[in-house]
Structure formats: structure tokens, C-alpha cells
Amino acid sequence: MTEYVGMVFVVASLIAIFSLTAPNFFQVETFRMTANQIPEVIILAVGMTYVLIVAGIDLSVGSVLALSSAVLGVCLVRYQLPLPVAVAASLGAGLACGAVNGSLTVAWRLPSFIVTLAMLQAARGLTHIVTGQQTQYFRPMIRELTSISVLGLSLPFLIAVAIAVLGQIVLCRTVFGRYMVAIGTNEEAARLSGIDPRRIKLVVFTLCGLLAAVAALAQSTRLGSATPTAGTGFELEVIAAVVIGGTSLMGGRGTVIRSVFGVIIIAILGRGLIQLGAADPTKQLITGCVIVAAVIVDHYRHSFRKAPLPTETPSPSL
């Protein structure tokens, strides 16, 4: 548990500060609504953590999210397809984008930064083409998805939590998870010991694309519509959350749970600043400062730590 001390401390301080300064902040309602607004970030943080662990990066997640929700919207509105078909098409779109990212990266050994930067552009372009640059409104067609909730927590939030838990288990307790860490730490060494890095990377990028589509579904069910500009700049929000969580941009190190803490920190900060009524420039300034401060505070977790990070422990399954 000691490895989460720094994160918990940052979250608790933020909550304490905003409870004292922002009107009506410390309420169950605040936390319930904030939770319901972050499933798409949690879901993508899982995918991004994996991508960063294998020493890649995925800049296309925001655009792929927009494309997937555009496909959902167009299937429901223009072609009037049944909901399951539209959802499948939407997931397929995300999966395909991820597979293209992965296969281009692997087949030509291109830096994923470049491949996904290209996908960021291409998927955004496709989104505009698919939607005819019009916001698609489909709330009446997705009633089945919006009506489910447990204790006021929406279905997308519960799914996001499940994905995060599953993501952490796969990372720490499976051979696949250990392979990802091995490749991110030293790809050549991993290859020489009989792991095929290309297959693992292909799967990781494809998974990230698929998760972008799941995130798109989570967002669309809440907003009831798909805007062609949705998810602009979203990749940076996700990367910031994952990096606050201590995942290394150099690969080989990171955990899903800590990334989720990063998401929570950014969400609470954003919510608090809105409830304070802070002006736009102030919000940006403070967000920047808190990102750095959170990473610095977390740096001192090493002084509390007795056990090494789970990703650094040798796994019995390897």
C-alpha cells in the first residue's frame, strides 16, 4: 500500500483545500457527479499506461474517440441501425485504428509518436467526413444504456472501474503483463530471450484503439450526442494523468491503479476550480502547477516505501 501514499496524500489535500474554499464542494453529490464524468479518462488511462509501458506513445486517442462516437451516431441516426449493431461498428472503428497504429509501428519499425500523430490527423479527418461535420444527436436511441445506475453511479463508470481492475491484474499477474514490462525495459533483451516484441506491441496498440472506442461509448451515452470536435486535446489530458501516476515515458515502469489516481487528481482539481469560479487563465496556471507538484510529492514515496513497485518484482508466472 505504501506506494500509493503520495497519491492518496495529494488527493486528500486537494479535497481538503476545495472543501474549505469552494462553496458546496464537500458533498456526496460532487463526488458522484465527478465520478460519472471521468469514465472515458479512466478507460483510456488503462490503454495509455500499457502503451507507455512498452515504451510507445499513442497521440491518436482523442481523434479515435471522436471517430468511434461519430460512427455510433451515424449508424443510429442516418442508417437507423439497431443499437447493438451500432455499438459493434463503433468498437470496430476503434479497433481498426488501433490495429493500423500497431501494424505500422511494428512492420516498418516506425516510432509510434509519428504513426499515432498521423492517426490523430487521419482519424479526425475521417470523423468530419463521416459526420458531414454535423453534430449527431441520438439520445432517444440509447435509452437502454443511460437508464442503468447503481447508487447514482452510471453504468459507464462501473465499466471503467472494472476495466481498470482487470487492467491492473493483467499487468501484474499474467505472462502478457510481464512481457510488456520486459519489452519496455529492454526490447532487445526481451527478443533474445524468446519474446516476440512485435506481437505484444501490435496487441497493445490495438487494445488502446479498442479502449478509445469504449471511452467514446461512455462519453456518448452521457452527452447523448457526438460532436466532430469531441476529444480534441484529450490525448494530453490522458498522458498527463498517466504520467502523474508515475508511469515512465521511457517504458518499462507503471501501474494502472496509479494512473487512475492521476485521473482522479486532475478531475478533482478541475471540478474544484470550476466551483471556485476561477477565471480561465488562473485555471490553466494552477493546473500546470499542480501537475508538477503532484509528481514531486509522489517522488518522496520512495522514503516511505519498504517494498519495491509491483512491476519491478519478479513474477512467479514468468
Binding site: N24, M33, Q37, L223, A230, G231, R271, I274, G277
Partner: peptide, 14 residues
């Protein structure tokens, strides 16, 4: 859209 959702959500709490 999604940013407005967050801002309005905070506003109505406040």
C-alpha cells in the same frame, strides 16, 4: 460539449 458538461455540473453544485 464535454467541457461545458463539467463546468455546468460544478456551477449547479455551487
Amino acid at each position: 460539449t464535454s467541457e461545458a458538461e463539467k463546468v455546468v455540473s460544478g456551477m449547479v453544485s455551487r
